[in-house]
Amino acid sequence: METKKNAIKSPLGKRLGNLLVHVFLAALAVVWIFPVVWIILISFRAEKGSYITTFIPKHFTFDNYIRLFTDRNILNFPQMVWNTFIIAVFTCIISTFFVLSVSYCTSRLRFKLRKPFMNMAMILGLFPGIMSMVAVYFILKALGLSEGAMIRVALVIVYSACSGMGFQIAKGFFDTIPKGIDEAAMVDGATQWDVFTKITIPLSKPIIVYTILTSFIGPWVDFIFAKVICRANAKYYTVAIGLWNMLDKEYINSWYTCFAAGAVIISIPIATLFLVMQKFYVDGMTGAVKG
């Protein structure tokens, strides 16, 4: 801070201050980027095992990626990708519908249970999700959804059933669309349904894209619910459990580099989607979306 203060006074000090700031930022950036670069390097490393003494691998290879998709005996990665994809698609459809419906109702319609519902969602949100996890498992079991192919259905339900509670961001967006447009349409005889489908939705593309992407990403990055619900049914594992298992004591020596390859493959699309969504995310959180 002291250098900055001087920086205002003399041009030389100012340049020195700027230089210091840039060096400082560069150092921080290295710290932040390091693990990302590290895992990419590991994914191309030819030497097996997790005990490493050099930063740059001695030999580079594509084998880790190839093995990930061809060695299907122990940890069937392609199957896991497929499982997660199916679950993500259905979760995405249901969640998007739920979130948009609830957000539109709480933003635009005035009904008696509106405030009670919003308060309830806030209170329920304070209960730790892990707490009800065991109970959710018992309920799924009682419904006959805990064995065999039904595990996929169970996971879709777990990821999407309560998505209606995450309405705040989309509601904040809907709130910013001028009400005058709705009223004008209603004067012309449009029903609420017409307003929702023909006016609000076409005007809300960004937030719809945001909702679709977040709900699609959910199943790829959750690992704890998937673990509790799949238990030992390796056939239905999702990618996250698979990656976790690759670091198990049993597998880590032969699978560590494949873990890195898997992590890179999963992270590239998710990171891209995240960067795309960043703007909506920030705007939604600060509540500053302009219609």
Binding site: S101, L109, R114, L124, F127, A161, S163
Partner: peptide, 24 residues
């Protein structure tokens, strides 16, 4: 319209959030 749009999401919250919580 709120009845049409909110029923299913509410049902989901009821069965997979409220019931498990009370149960727990």
């Amino acid at each position: 319209l709120h009845v049409t749009l909110m029923s299913l999401p509410m049902l989901g919250i009821l069965i997979f959030n409220i019931v498990p919580l009370l149960f727990m």
